[in-house]
């Protein structure tokens, strides 16, 4: 399959998990990566800046209608939902979903509709159930899903909820996810 986009959802413990993934992805990783990391409203730019220190890929917080370009990591801004349209991002301030804005479900659903089988979804550590519905939609639309092995997750609720709802393609310890992504994307 010719994958075109990676979406990643993380909550509690996500900062370390995301950093581990991004510092182990090669600088020539060619698919755009879109990340929803739950966080409080006013965290400003620090999350992005801190992960950037360890990532080979450029991290940006997209504005509304920012074009999705390969080789970049897009981090959902605080207090907005981040949705994917064909080729560009859309932001919304619709009410929180499952108490979350940004919501992993909202991102995954929009990406599944826009990218179908060309989508890879990744669910990481977290202490709530956001992302479970999203994963089931990614599968419904023919995409590929990797869930972090709950045993290796700082908080296992989120990966477990995703696994309880869907049959996914891979369950991997955190350290093996970057390699799997590189392989799927054809970067290796």
């Amino acid at each position: 399959m010719d994958y075109k986009l990676v979406v990643v959802g993380a909550s509690l413990g996500g900062f370390d998990a995301l950093t581990t993934i991004l510092e182990n992805l090669p600088g020539n990783f060619k698919l755009p990566i879109v990340v929803v990391q739950h966080r409080t409203r006013d965290t400003g730019d620090t999350l992005r800046a801190n992960i950037q220190l360890r990532s080979h890929l450029l991290l940006v917080e997209p504005d509304d209608k920012t074009e999705i370009t390969p080789g970049k990591v897009y981090l959902a801004p605080p207090n907005y939902h981040l949705l994917v349209e064909k080729g560009y991002f859309a932001l919304s301030i619709d009410p929180p979903v499952e108490y979350s804005r940004p919501s992993i479900d909202v991102l995954f659903e929009s990406a599944a509709i826009a990218f179908g089988p060309a989508l890879i979804g990744v669910v990481l550590t977290g202490s709530n159930r956001d992302g479970a519905k999203g994963v089931s939609l990614v599968k419904e639309y023919g995409g590929y899903v990797i869930v972090q092995d709950p045993l290796t997750a700082e908080s296992k609720t989120m990966p477990e909820a995703a696994l309880a709802l869907s049959q996914v393609d891979r369950v991997l310890p955190l350290e093996e996810i970057p390699l799997a992504l590189a392989e799927l994307s054809g970067t290796l």
Partner: peptide, 9 residues
């Protein structure tokens, strides 16, 4: 209107 969020609503 932006299709993705409109569809949700």
């Amino acid at each position: 209107y932006a299709p993705a969020s409109l569809r949700r609503r």
